[in-house]
Design a protein around this nucleic acid. Sequence first.
DNA 1: TAGATTGTTAATCGATTAACAATC
DNA 2: TAGATTGTTAATCGATTAACAATC
Lengths: 215, 215
Amino acid sequence: MAYQDKGLGVPILRRLPMYLSLLKEYRSQGQELVSSSQLAGDLNLESIQVRKDLAATGIVGKPKVGFPVDSLIESIENFLGWDNASDAFVVGAGNLGSALLGYKGFSKHGLNILAAFDNDISKVGKKISGKEVLPFSKLPDLVRRMKVHLAVLTVPPEVAQRTADTLVLAGIRAFWNFTSVQLIVPENIIVENVDLASSLAVLSRKLSLALERSE
Amino acid sequence: MAYQDKGLGVPILRRLPMYLSLLKEYRSQGQELVSSSQLAGDLNLESIQVRKDLAATGIVGKPKVGFPVDSLIESIENFLGWDNASDAFVVGAGNLGSALLGYKGFSKHGLNILAAFDNDISKVGKKISGKEVLPFSKLPDLVRRMKVHLAVLTVPPEVAQRTADTLVLAGIRAFWNFTSVQLIVPENIIVENVDLASSLAVLSRKLSLALERSE
DNA sequence: TAGATTGTTAATCGATTAACAATC
DNA sequence: TAGATTGTTAATCGATTAACAATC
């Protein structure tokens, strides 16, 4: 296991937001305690898996009683670093970039989008969902001055690698990569891919098997 | 293993599009044969993993020679059903729905978007990236008449479950779910979630570990 | 033939699930 | 105390990696 991944299983990380969203629903309904079996039932998981996952975040429950909803929420948010959102720039203000700029909920998911960058003159200077669109030329300097570590990459595939190279030089440490390009970056740089093609692969295969079966 | 998943490992499925895109690049450069170690090198994988993955699609290579690029492409596309794209409706023509309507490449990934649906009167009747936006009220009938099996769900979270219920009744068999809602659907209905929160969870955790380390 | 690369069989690793003891 | 639920230790399962025989 790479040092980078210490103590963390990716499958567990992927489930934590599911717990979090459910727990917030419980809280809004005034529920103060929850058992692993309730969480499991509502998420179609096994209760033992829920307990293992929660244990990974460091929280301890009380036998017979369960887990306090409030402190579970707190633990998970803290574990993910979502109690202290990271500043980010959206790079590429096309359709997808604009859609991401429009999401209100990211700050609750650890992401604080400051502004967007694009080279299209018809966009620069305008605002999208309240965030300014700045020219790409200002990006390296602003990354440095504002100590922004995270870039949401939504540029066209042709310029993805080149853009990433520039951002790495400017000091970006992590990419949320929405392009279809497998970025090549130095070892210490983090890339999380939102890979629609792989998602479609899973879906296509399941659908074609299901349709075959029902003919 | 559920019947639905027969013979298919999800991790393998997720890697197939990576091979495919690389293979097309080789082809465009006139390369006719490829070894598992070349693919592995270019994708940062182990060659044995590449061989296992390819074997899963049913293709056989030739010892000493490698795999013919052309027939590899064909096998993978056929295995995924991407040689015969499924018709789909985009449900919800907001920012994200519009972004998806704008992607030209989906037909090469097994997805043929026919039209979009929305209830917003200012959108209905217009076109987005050349696709018509129709009123939601026409959706159930069109799903039936056009035998559309797949819905790309990009509605607001508040109406996601209700919309899915309606679509299931109309005959939709699979959802590509871009909402943050865990849909509850009958057993035989397929849901593939594009879960940005879980992706952000992985990213946040890695970033906070990396930043901690470099302080 | 010799050598490179595939495909197969076995070993390892990590994630999930099961069994059960600890405890409020 | 009794019972429910947690947390721990062990078993299972699937995916990845390693070793090597088959073959063009």
